[in-house]
Design a protein around this nucleic acid. Sequence first.
DNA 1: GCAGCGCTGGAAAGCGCTTTCCGCCACGCT
DNA 2: AGCGTGGCGGAAAGCGCTTTCCAGCGCTGC
Lengths: 338, 338
Amino acid sequence: MSARQVTLAEVAKQAGVSLATASRVLNGSTRQVSEELSDRVLRTAEQLGYVPNASAQALARNSSSMVGLVVHDITDPYFSCIAAGVTRVAEEAGLVVVLGTTGRRPEREVELLSTLRAHRARAVVLAGSRTTDRASQSRLAAEIDAFTEQGGRVACVSQAKLGTDTVVPGNRAGGRALARALAGLGHKKFAVLGGPSELVVARDRLAGFKAGLADAGIAPPVVINGAFTRDGGYEAALELLGSKSKATCVFAVTDVMAMGAMAALRERGVRVPEDMSIAGFDDIPTLRDTVPALSTVRLPLEEMGELAAGLVLDAGGDEARTVRVAGEVVLRASTAHN
Amino acid sequence: MSARQVTLAEVAKQAGVSLATASRVLNGSTRQVSEELSDRVLRTAEQLGYVPNASAQALARNSSSMVGLVVHDITDPYFSCIAAGVTRVAEEAGLVVVLGTTGRRPEREVELLSTLRAHRARAVVLAGSRTTDRASQSRLAAEIDAFTEQGGRVACVSQAKLGTDTVVPGNRAGGRALARALAGLGHKKFAVLGGPSELVVARDRLAGFKAGLADAGIAPPVVINGAFTRDGGYEAALELLGSKSKATCVFAVTDVMAMGAMAALRERGVRVPEDMSIAGFDDIPTLRDTVPALSTVRLPLEEMGELAAGLVLDAGGDEARTVRVAGEVVLRASTAHN
DNA sequence: GCAGCGCTGGAAAGCGCTTTCCGCCACGCT
DNA sequence: AGCGTGGCGGAAAGCGCTTTCCAGCGCTGC
């Protein structure tokens, strides 16, 4: 079955030119080739259906056309938005993106990076959220070093500290602004459904939120940790309801968690926003049509992906660059005056 | 900066063995190597931080470890769920998945396939929905042929007819079952927010739905076509409201469109389900917590991705296989008795 | 009129790996 | 003893492409 693949050599022979000439014609080298030969080569290539062997090119040039993208869970809209941004930019640059999912396991992140290194990926965007776990962080740092040593570029979304280019959303500032806005609504008692305590993104948002409450002279919130997922939000909300908390407003550190939390509240007959206000973070596009509309901090997710891809593809100087993107508080129907 | 990459040759030299031996040790060949040499090679490789050059391997073996995944829009939960299934299986098989997004342009699909061919991808999963446009279909078919000629495998999700392995969701059957269930609720007048008329998935769902209505002895629905997106659903719903339709129940051929439609209804003060019942198709997980909960036809999206990946990775026989997955009608709060 | 130059085409040396083929050695059998 | 035989290590031939280096050639400039 598999009709052997057309090679450059065949094209060259057919066109009656040397391998070198054919290569020069078909892959924009700096060298000039006379129009006659050039035409001949182009025509035969076309007609034979020649497609260069990317592996061979990568080998010969010692550089591939792949850029890696590492996310925890492509199903999570947060990541899929970022992925959309990254792929758009990569595809425009004629690169191919390889997608790796970690399932939130730090060791997978390291494995993926190593695989990407094996493929001599030109660059990689790490969109997984960093943790504070020392051991896995240092393994990751080692892999990142190995990767850059080898000439690859690395950019992270969220969380710098790894000596790489980074796109940093204003997690802290966003949390803070949100807290103030919520305080402005008259709420006095707050609860926070935080993610796992070792996730830096979650910590930052929480820290910012606390700071914002402090700004407004409000007592620190009750904090309930849970998984960084819809179910995590659901569980955490149940736990909150089970506690003796008097909170009238709850902040879930993620829109997705907020959705889970709202489901829990609904099940328990707690009305949003009448009985309880709730806010999230991210402003996931898919969730914008929910009822009641979720108050949140909008992050330009796709743009963040684009920025990260941009950082990693622009040759960029010697030292780590950081691009900050601001979150914008969006108050909607899920939060009411108190 | 870029410290040159460790090669097999260096490992071999360090370990005092030949290239061949080192290769045999480090990449499970059929050939045996004495334990002593084997150990030595393994140790030096480890200690030098050797990572095989995937391009070189691909070239030498004439087969890469990549599997392609082509979707329209990774941001759409429908596709991201499928993507999750595909990546899981691929990663388990030690393969790398390269993600391509078409932005719903057929020609991009062809381009991507060609790129994947250049990379000698082992297989590719096409998750984009097929259209009925003859020209682009035949170009696509040609690329698919070229790809398989070359030894690659192709599987499609939805829509067979391309001579490839396929995972076919029960679009027609699901639409039909949904129509019957909705008729069972007492509705007599229906409207359908169909996708673009050339999308086969949309047509099938619509056709099934019509058949189901016919089964129940109900007049054909008003059909309004629109884009296969949230905004498409929104626009279509507005158009429906603007018309003189007496429909009491509307079927959006996609959950995502249904969300848009519900937003439109809400804006216009049409209550769901009191004034209008609405149902979707897919049962997108992210949307399960919306209020009112959306009636829909559940498709095991991730599983479909897994199945497709399975098809494409199992060497598989000579002829095209088809795996059917059934949709399950799930009636929830967005549809009421009439 | 000839050295020297700029320009184009081709031969060939890799890129890092796999795999065939060969050779060596230690057996075990007659 | 003589000789297959089987097991294992190594040399080397690619895989398909890029790129350096050299050769030829038509010019310009003195």
